[in-house]
Computed example of a mutant assay.
Amino acid sequence: MLSTDLLRDAAERFGTPLYVYDADELDAGLERVRAAFGGARVFFAVKANPNLSLLKHMAGAGLGFDCVSYGELCRAEFLGLAGERIISNGPAKSQAEYDLGARLGVTFIVDRVEEVGLLPPRSRALVRVNPALQISTHDHLATGSAASKFGVTPEQVPLVLKALREAGHRALGLHVHIGSAIRDAQDFTAAYARLAELRSQTGPLEVFDAGGGWGIGADLHGIAREARHAAGVFDAELWVEPGRYLVAPAGVLLTTVVGVKRTGRNFCLVDAGMTELIRPMMYGAAHPLTPLWGGTQVETWDVAGPACESGDLLARDVPLPEPSRGDLLVIGEAGAYGAAMSTTYLTRARPAEVLRRSGEWQLIRRREEPQELWQTEL
């Protein structure tokens, strides 16, 4: 995390709520991935944080992009990426995604049998496989469970590969992504092993895409070892798709205390809430909190946002010194799915985003004005 003095400086210059990113930590996360996965091809999962300045930074570091919408493909095109540096993923792609993907020459992830007939002519494709496992993460994040909407069953894989080839497409290989924020390396071991069992039916393949979803603090080297082994079973090149792992530790959300309230529970009221960071409400996500104030009297507080919703809580039962109006609170690990999932609910303008790079602040998204939010309304 950036120093307290730098965070205070950012809040004073740009106001709060404010997303703050550290370019050095972004680079450190990428180095951890490359150290673990060696020569694997790395695609950044754009949905984790689509800010153009951050994407440009990652593209400059040699990463490709994993895109799951037409808008994300447009961002990749705007930054000059094309061909083998883009993956088009998702369970229900639009015709616009197929058309733009064809023009850019992307690799399509086939998510269901019927999608083979929707691909543009002579596409490159990977087949997404759902290993139907019990995944140690929130149900909403478990994309490799039997109840998930993603991927084809292992039994369908030979059929889909055959259909791709017969339709004139280049069937590169297999793709698996079992979820997000997963810390138990055994989940990945089980998923890769399940796909490796298909080798006798698929023969050698060009690509084994092991996805992402590694939780912060997970045994990355152990996961990488299993992914490399699975790729080796298919004599395939290894691809990976980190998102949250790269950007979450590189970003924090700064919020200011606006007051306190004692009504049977202690509430620390702040100027950020579900509209700025919805993960606690949506996934029960626990973000580390750091108060930038001192005090000897520590009590347990619920950190509550300003939305007129009972669920607008950023954290419960957090030990904090007595807060006062104007104090700054740092919400950590907020660089992924924070600003990306922020909303204008209640006509709340989305926060600014700043990047600390080479000793300087860079405003990479200005704070919206309320009047901008209704410009498209008639």
Rank of each mutant, 00 (worst) to 15 (best):
Val270Thr: 09
Gly294Ser: 14
Val257Pro: 07
Lys261Glu: 15
Pro242Gln: 00
Ser324Glu: 15
Leu313Ser: 07
His229Pro: 09
Thr296Gly: 09
Ala307Pro: 04
Arg316Trp: 05
Cys268Asn: 12
Gln201Leu: 07
Ala236Cys: 06
Met274His: 02
Val318Ala: 09
Ala227Arg: 11
Leu289Thr: 07
Gly273Phe: 01
Ala272Ile: 02
Leu269Gln: 04
His221Trp: 04
Gly251His: 09
Gly311His: 05
Thr202Phe: 07
Cys308Met: 13
Gly264Val: 00
Gly259Asp: 07
Gly212Asp: 13
Glu276Ser: 06
Pro323Gly: 06
Ala210Ile: 01
Tyr283Gly: 10
Tyr245Asp: 03
Val258Phe: 07
Thr202Met: 01
Arg265Glu: 15
Val257Gln: 07
Leu277Trp: 01
Ser324His: 15
Gly203Lys: 01
Leu246Lys: 03
Ala285Phe: 08
Ala286Glu: 02
Asp312Val: 03
Pro249Ala: 11
Gly295Pro: 13
Ala250Leu: 03
Val252Gly: 08
Leu205His: 06
Leu198His: 06
Ala231Arg: 12
Leu246Thr: 02
Ala250Thr: 03
Glu299Pro: 06
Val247Met: 01
Thr255Arg: 10
Glu299Asn: 14
Ile278Glu: 11
Trp301His: 05
Ala272Thr: 01
Ser324Ile: 06
Gly212Leu: 03
Glu309Asp: 13
Ala248Pro: 07
Asp312Leu: 06
Pro319Ser: 13
Thr263Glu: 12
Ser310Asp: 14
Leu289Val: 10
Ile223His: 08
Pro323Leu: 09
Ala286Cys: 01
Glu322Phe: 14
Cys308Pro: 00
Asp312Gln: 10
Ile278His: 12
Asp209Pro: 05
Lys261Trp: 12
Leu253Glu: 10
Pro321Ser: 06
Thr275Asn: 14
Ala196Thr: 14
Arg265Asp: 14
Trp293Asp: 02
Ile278Phe: 15
Val240Cys: 06
Ser200Phe: 00
Ala315Pro: 01
Thr290Gly: 00
Ala315His: 10
Gly264Ser: 00
Gly211Arg: 05
Val303Ser: 06
His221Asp: 11
